[in-house]
């Protein structure tokens, strides 16, 4: 079993990994089938003295078989993908445990915390550069806007990626199930400093998250 995908820290990330491996096994099997047939044909039917090629223009039954079979597999992949896509991109959680804002600019993620009143977009919001702090086992909703060009908010381990388009709001949501520090690279070419545009996701335990909130909120009020 191949395990090249980075470790998964999102509660729903397993869905994506599952789909990845489903496609991986289907495509690998198809490739092996085609490759084996091809190599076998090349060896069996190489030019031999006195042997003529078989004169045939095709076979309709075969055409139908190899049109329908891939179609069935593709429909299965499609049906498996739709619910997960909805989970990742359409069904935005109405009542997330944590709301965070991200404002992307060349070449930083400005992370906005709600501040003492618990609401985004008010005067007491706290802004940190490139630091996304979230508690473990809570649903996090990050709503994102951009200041200049298109950036893409990518957390490989959380299986999250979303372009940030200036002039419109996009969002990602996930539920981290493991504490630790992870990187948040920008995945869309955004200019000279694109490479190295990198933030940090810190997944806290409940206690250390509380301590973090107190720290930033007191700093704000003082």
């Amino acid at each position: 079993m191949m395990s090249w995908l980075p470790e998964n820290i999102s509660a729903d990330g397993g869905d994506m990994d599952f789909l990845f491996y489903v496609i991986y096994y289907i495509t690998s099997a198809t490739f092996i089938l085609v490759a084996v047939c091809m190599v076998a044909f090349l060896i069996l039917y190489r030019q031999k003295p006195g042997v003529r090629a078989t004169y045939t223009h095709g076979n309709n039954t075969l055409e139908i078989i190899w049109t329908i079979t891939p179609a069935i597999f593709l429909v299965v992949i499609m049906l498996l993908s739709q619910p997960s896509w909805a989970k990742f991109k359409i069904d935005r959680p109405a009542n997330p445990d944590v709301r965070i804002g991200v404002i992307a600019k060349q070449f930083n993620w400005i992370v906005v915390y709600p501040g003492p009143d618990g609401k985004l977009g008010t005067k007491d919001d706290v802004k940190l550069d490139n630091q996304v702090n979230v508690p473990v086992n809570k649903t996090v909703l990050i709503s994102m806007t951009g200041q200049d060009v298109i950036h893409s908010f990518f957390i490989p381990q959380a299986r999250v990626k979303q372009d940030i388009v200036p002039g419109r709001e996009t969002a990602v949501w996930f539920k981290p199930i493991k504490t630790g520090k992870f990187e948040i690279p920008c995945a869309e070419l955004c200019g000279m400093g694109h490479s190295g545009m990198n933030g940090e996701l810190v997944v806290h335990t409940a206690e250390s998250y509380k301590a973090f909130l107190e720290k930033i909120n007191t700093k704000k009020s003082s």
């Binding site: 995908l5 990845f20 289907i26 992949i77 490989p156 995945a187």
Partner: peptide, 26 residues
């Protein structure tokens, strides 16, 4: 033929919009 098969099959990964979330722009 053989290389196009690989290219075509790898396309199925990103055709699935869910898997594309991870591999897009990689």
């Amino acid at each position: 033929v053989s290389m196009f098969v690989i290219g075509g099959l790898s396309g199925i990964f990103m055709a699935s919009n869910t898997v594309d979330i991870f591999i897009h722009d990689t």
